Amino acid sequence: MADSQNTGTTRGLLERLNEGPVVCAEGYLFELERRGYLQAGSFVPEVVLDHPEVMEQVHRDFTHAGSDIQQAFTYNGTREKMRIMGKEDKLEPLNRNALRIARKVARETDTLLAGNICNSNVYDPENPDSVREAREMFEEQVQWAAEEGADMVIAETYSWTGEAKMALDIIKKHNLPAVVTMAMHRAPHTRDGDTLPDACKKLEDAGADVVGLNCMRGPWTMLETIKEVRQKCSGHVAAVPVPYRTNEEEPTFMALRDHVCPHHVPEGRPFPTALDPFLCNRYEVEDFTRQAHEAGVDYFGLCCGCQPHLLRSMAEALGRRPEASKYSPDMSKHAWFGQAARDINKSFADEL
């Protein structure tokens, strides 16, 4: 499969992966909702039309933190979602603007421009009309990505192996590198019955350049399965968890329940607007990244909930020093906890 043929970049996705691990920031939905530029619930990326300068800054913030890829914010920018919103006329402008914003940052920072397609929310293998509708949505989004000079396409958050394979087939027709990741819900299998490692193997055999898991699962409920994917597949493997403390009883961030203040969140469900207490700290992200990399994973990212300081920790765990590492913590310089206090025999820390 051709690598980075549409642009003037010197190193495409496969070249970068052959040199070492790649980091890709995702999670724009939650980051922009947190900043006040996107509505929780609909999660439609109208910010790329309404506030392109904010979207550009988000790309720059994540690049500063270590992202190698500018993923165009077209997640949920589908015909089906825009029809529900009554804004289907904005569909193509939204997609093209998202791609152009990401392309601007990519070309200025020697990073890659990625088109993005996602779960269609209409796909049903028993309904030919729904399959056709999903295919048409993927086809137009990938076409726009190719026309806008994408170096690659990320197809993500699929619950059906069949839908993911269909997305991959469309990307391959444009001769673009494809990253295809599956979403692992409570059940350890896809909706069409494959285990997640088997689904990833099928996608790899069908021509995906990178396969793996994204979203839904936090680091500690994704890790063992991603290790199984690594054992099953021979090529590049992606681990893109949500940075939330999911657990065996509540394995996805949608399943999390707040047992401390259950009456202060809608229906007792923290997802999507009250997940703050469950956010992983940077050291947990670092630990996960190190363990996954030691297992052979070489494509990393964080999905919903990604924040620049967490992505920086992911990059640093891989031995990278992004620009933001200039400001990584150094408590030796702290007035109360640092060396200066110890040098004058003061232990302020003991009083705190």
Rank of each mutant, 00 (worst) to 15 (best):
N6E: 06
T9K: 14
G20D: 08
V22H: 04
V23Y: 10
C24E: 12
Y28S: 07
Y28E: 12
F30C: 00
L32C: 07
G36S: 11
Y37P: 05
L38D: 01
Q39D: 15
G41F: 10
G41K: 08
V44K: 06
V44M: 12
L49M: 13
L49C: 12
D50H: 13
D50I: 03
D50C: 02
P52H: 12
V58R: 08
H59I: 06
S67V: 10
D68Y: 06
Q70F: 07
Q70S: 03
Q71V: 15
N76G: 00
N76Y: 13
G77F: 04
R83A: 15
R83Y: 06
G86D: 11
G86R: 08
D89L: 08
L91Q: 07
E92I: 15
R100F: 10
R107W: 02
T111A: 09
L112H: 08
L113S: 03
N119V: 13
N119L: 14
V122N: 06
Y123I: 07
P125V: 01
P125W: 04
S130F: 13
V131K: 14
A134D: 13
M137P: 02
E139F: 05
Q141E: 13
E148T: 02
D151S: 11
V153H: 03
V153Q: 03
I154P: 00
A155I: 05
A155E: 07
E156W: 02
G162C: 06
E163V: 07
M166D: 11
L168S: 05
K173M: 11
K173V: 00
A178S: 13
T181I: 04
A183D: 04
T190R: 05
D192F: 13
D194G: 00
T195K: 09
L203T: 01
D205M: 10
V210N: 04
M216W: 05
R217C: 09
G218R: 04
W220P: 00
L223Y: 02
E224I: 02
V229P: 04
K232F: 09
C233V: 15
H236C: 08
A238Y: 03
A238I: 05
V242K: 01
F253I: 12
D258S: 12
H259T: 15
H264I: 01
H264W: 10
P266A: 07
G268S: 10
P272R: 09
L275T: 08
C280T: 04
V285Y: 08
E286A: 14
F288G: 02
A295V: 10
G296D: 12
F300G: 06
C303S: 14
C306K: 01
C306Y: 01
S313D: 05
L318I: 11
S328N: 08
P329H: 09
P329F: 13
M331H: 11
S332L: 12
W336C: 05
W336I: 01
W336Q: 09
K346L: 15
S347N: 14
S347F: 15
L352S: 01
L352P: 00
